[in-house]
Nucleic acid binder design. Structure first.
Lengths: 135, 135
DNA sequence: AACTTAAATGAGAATCATTTGCATCTGGGC
DNA sequence: GCCCAGATGCAAATGATTCTCATTTAAGTT
């Protein structure tokens, strides 16, 4: 989550990348869209184009710094990839996202993939519903 | 999966709707995009516009005839909603999709939602990886 | 510190999936 | 067969994301 992670990933340490990384770090709890990141940059008077935000986020994804999610069909959201994997509870009304990890489910998934002769590379479990506030 | 299901859903029984329902039924194993459905209609010399395909699929989704998935970020796919819920194994290389149901996971999900005070309305578990053929 | 070059960026055009406005058409009740 | 709300076709509009290309810059080299 710093300049080093960029260097390690073989990416030049540029203003846009550093700023975007900062923004993502400052918003770990949320899942941000490219547009969200762009707007945040604007409020910080940073001159970064939307195209660059998209390019940087895509690069971050390919080097494993962030993870892309397609909860909604019309735009992707990103989150810093911390060490531990986790799944999501998504409120269909307010969009709030809560994370969780469940060992039982993790294990079953591996068994299922193995049974189907799939070499699992990733998995995503999303539980949709109404959060406490929205009920 | 017939004219009755349309009437029951309060939708007029029109040529486009019937044809699209037939196509979805004939391709239960696959998950079709709007474009896929449209192309199939073309091969059958059916005069249905792409806009109508989108409208019909969206209506089918809202009345519960089909389910929409956003496996890939850039286009949605649809599948006839059979009675039983199921999850997916998606091959990241050839796009093949296999379905499965796992009681253990289903139960855990309900417990997790309850613990987080979420009223679960739906859930989706996708395991991504390489299928036997693609490995 | 200046020099060099591949990589990075900005701006705007281009793309692609999906949606919409509107004039026309049609299913199904009378 | 008549009527009309709902359905459709077509083309233009949208919105997210990507691409083109001229310009700038990070970071290694002299």
């Amino acid at each position: 989550m710093n300049d080093e992670s960029l260097r390690e990933a073989g990416l030049k340490v540029t203003i846009p990348r550093v700023k975007i990384l900062e923004i993502l770090t400052a918003n770990k709890q949320r899942h941000m869209s490219a547009e969200d990141v762009y707007k945040t940059l604007l409020t910080q008077r940073e001159e970064v184009s939307l195209a660059t935000v998209y390019r940087v986020l895509t690069q971050f994804e390919s080097v494993g710094i962030v993870m892309r999610h397609n909860f909604e069909g019309d735009h992707a959201v990103f989150e810093l990839k911390e060490n531990e994997h986790h799944d999501h509870l998504v409120c269909v009304r307010c969009g709030k996202v809560e994370e969780f990890v469940d060992e039982t489910i993790e294990k079953r998934q591996q068994q299922i993939a193995k049974q189907a002769n799939f070499k699992m590379t990733d998995h995503a479990l999303n539980i949709y519903g109404l959060c406490g506030t929205c009920q």
